[in-house]
Write a protein that binds this DNA or RNA. Structure first.
Lengths: 137, 137
DNA sequence: TTTCAAATGCAAACCATTTGCAAAAAAATC
DNA sequence: GATTTTTTTGCAAATGGTTTGCATTTGAAA
């Protein structure tokens, strides 16, 4: 998984908080929530407030740079770069693995044909048990 | 889409509220939220409280009879029978269309092979523009 | 019919997220 | 580079969907 490079969209100012949030999202290996971004930045000694994080996440989502999603049995929103929006979740340990080369396109055509929708995006979440947890039990 | 018949799981009592909730979920054509269930029952003259609805939805979800999901740009959870968990959403008018015969199985094998997960479930959300909205421009 | 655990309703509590507003920081203008 | 203008931030308070405590009601077993 190559680390995708993000930049602040046109029309928005460059602030250290904004840049720090983008960096965390770039480095994240899977969708993370606002609190996690907050803690990550705190650990790096970067001062920021939760409301700033929320406001920026909203902006980035609206601009299409970031995708918001919810996971089973979780009440908080997670955010990730678009290339990390399809993933597998282990029901036992919670491990998250991104689906690269999402095979969605293979049946996209079929969906268009059957329902007539002009498809602009999708999100796939798959649950199961990861190899490690299979061994353990 | 055949209307799937639900019954109260073993070990739980039969109450009029519980049965009413199940009936609403059976008849729903796509995932609905707690408030919608509440209004639907109120319209039918059935007395029930929101907390009872939430408690039952939690139970049904835990028992696997119902699937919880979140939609883009919405802050409320939706619930539906498992056969209605994969759907298309129109970005313009909000129309929701269930994906029958989900083509997921076609690439399930591929996912198992690549990631080694023992897959137990999945959820697919597709965004786009429905035929009606395409005509309108 | 009695008994007892489960289910309900209500109001209060929770908690992730949003919002109002004044202060701080960017970018634009002079 | 100083000044002006507009955006962004932080804080605290508000919001709103969801959860919870508790007294009461109800279902079903005895």
């Amino acid at each position: 998984m190559a680390e995708q490079k993000l930049s602040i969209p046109k029309g928005y100012r460059k602030t250290k908080q904004r840049e720090a949030i983008l960096k965390v999202l770039e480095r994240a290996e899977y969708p993370i929530n606002a609190e996690q971004i907050f803690m990550e930045l705190k650990n790096r000694g970067i001062e920021i407030s939760l409301s700033t994080i929320y406001r920026n996440l909203e902006m980035l989502t609206k601009e299409g740079l970031v995708v918001k999603s919810y996971m089973m049995n979780e009440d908080k929103a997670r955010f990730a770069l678009p290339d990390k929006k399809n993933y597998l979740v282990c029901e036992k340990c919670g491990k998250i693995v991104i689906i690269d080369n999402c095979p969605f396109d293979k049946f996209k055509e079929e969906l268009i044909e059957v329902h007539g929708f002009d498809i602009t995006g999708h999100s796939i979440e798959v649950y199961g048990v990861c190899p490690d947890c299979q061994k353990k039990g």
